[in-house]
């Protein structure tokens, strides 16, 4: 029974405690760890499917770049607020139409939002933004410009980090708030109240509505979705290129590593995965037990 007494292997060892067995306490049987299971239920990734999924991350990065490009144009007076508002309106109407088409394909059962309700919320948003744009314009006047830029940069980064890429519709509250905070900061550095209004409407379009449309596209038209992502990435790099060549280069490198290099790493490192399971694992409750309560 003690750790050092000689084993008498006449009877086979059993993995039981209730029986006093003629083996020392530190005896290690052939069957030691026989119930160990490795890499159970591990997903095997295929490179191009991972690249496709990573495309969403890339296009969101481009969205931020595009937004910054638009802001740069506005700040330098190369783009008038009327022009931006008009383009935004056209894009919004086109996007809304597309969204309606894609939605009607899938959800016949549940109650759809009426057009009137959509129009109502759009009107509320726009009128409030318009009404508050003079206030927002002067909001950060007492803050130094460096601080505003730094804050915007941090917030846009936070937006990218906290964005719910797996389920972007509706956009997560943290990521949306961070993006809108950054937009308010940037918009308040523009020359006029109308500029601010145009910039904020554009921000709502890019950060709040665009992810919803893209999610619909991903669900219903995966091929077109890939095309849109590629288009967005090229558009982002191109747009930034007209303002800052260095920035465009950096963005291109970032996009390349996120969409091509990181999936490669994931697929390569997958083979080093060594996940162990065994009888010591805590059992998981898979059943829906709330039915007993509600």
């Amino acid at each position: 029974m003690g750790p050092d007494s000689a084993p008498g292997p006449a009877v086979p060892w059993q993995k039981v405690l209730w029986e006093r067995q003629p083996f020392p306490d530190n005896y290690v049987d052939q069957r030691f760890l026989e119930e160990l299971r490795r890499n159970e239920g591990v997903r095997q990734y295929r490179y191009w499917s991972v690249v496709k999924e990573a495309g969403f991350v890339g296009q969101q990065l481009s969205c931020v770049a595009l937004f910054i490009t638009l802001w740069l144009y506005m700040e330098q007076g190369l783009l008038s607020p009327e022009m931006l508002l008009l383009t935004s309106l056209v894009c919004a109407l086109l996007g809304y139409g597309l969204h309606q088409v894609l939605t009607s394909q899938i959800e016949p059962g549940c109650e759809p939002r009426t057009r009137l309700a959509d129009l109502q919320s759009a009107a509320i948003f726009l009128s409030f933004t318009f009404g508050f744009s003079p206030v927002l314009k002067t909001l950060t006047e007492s803050v130094s410009t460096d601080t505003v830029y730094a804050m915007s940069a941090v917030m846009l980064l936070a937006h990218l980090v906290s964005f719910p890429y797996a389920q972007p519709s509706p956009p997560g509250s943290l990521s949306l708030n961070a993006a809108l905070f950054a937009s308010v900061c940037l918009a308040s550095r523009l020359p006029g109240a109308l500029h601010t209004f145009a910039m904020l409407s554009c921000a709502l379009l890019v950060f709040a509505l665009w992810p919803c449309l893209l999610q619909r596209l991903r669900e219903n038209a995966p091929n077109q979705f890939t095309g849109v992502c590629v288009g967005m990435c090229i558009g982002g790099v191109g747009g930034l290129g007209t303002q800052s060549l260095g920035g465009a280069m950096l963005l291109a490198i970032a996009l390349g590593s996120v969409t091509l290099l990181c999936p490669l790493l994931l697929v390569r490192l997958q083979r080093h995965k060594d996940n162990i399971h065994g009888p010591w694992d805590e059992a998981e409750i898979h059943e829906d037990l709330s039915r007993f309560l509600h």
Binding site: P3, L17, D25, N26, V28, L33, G278, W280
Partner: peptide
């Protein structure tokens, strides 16, 4: 010097967690 576990499953678990030589782990319920 020596580790005591309260069951064989616990021994397997501890040996794996701490990458031990199973010879220095005794099972005493």
């Amino acid at each position: 010097n020596h580790i005591v576990c309260v069951s064989y499953t616990s021994k397997e678990n501890t040996v794996l967690r701490a990458t031990l030589n199973p010879e220095i782990v005794s099972v005493i319920p």
